[in-house]
């Protein structure tokens, strides 16, 4: 499905929807999820339709995910770190502290 042309960079393990994902240091969350074949990152706040990475450069805001409890983070602009808790978003986020 997806290939890495080289394996440099240390392994970093984070979770998506509670499942462990192995990434490489320096990956964005979006790249790391793409690398393991996960494309469906959220359900749109308008219709609930499935969305994922589109531009990979911070422009389209389609790859929004919840990171460590903070919603609407751009997966393509967030670097993976060990232990990051990444979750799929659905609909309008709750207003909370």
């Amino acid at each position: 499905m997806v290939r890495r042309i080289e394996t440099i960079g240390n392994e970093v393990i984070f979770s998506f929807e509670g499942q462990p994902v192995t990434a490489r240091a320096g990956d964005s969350v979006a790249a790391a999820l793409t690398a393991v074949g996960i494309s469906h990152l959220r359900d749109s706040v308008v219709s609930g339709a499935a969305r994922g990475v589109y531009c990979m450069m911070g422009a389209c805001f389609d790859c929004l995910v919840e990171v460590n409890g903070v919603p609407n983070r751009q997966a393509c602009m967030t670097e993976v770190r060990h232990g990051l808790d990444v979750r799929r978003q659905s609909g309008g986020v709750e207003v909370r502290s």
Partner: peptide, 20 residues
């Protein structure tokens, strides 16, 4: 999901060495 720009695939390749 799964539909990206061509630029996105190139960024994956440049920044992470990932090819689909």
């Amino acid at each position: 999901p799964g539909v990206t720009t061509a630029g996105a695939l190139q960024i994956l390749l440049k920044a992470s060495g990932i090819v689909q």
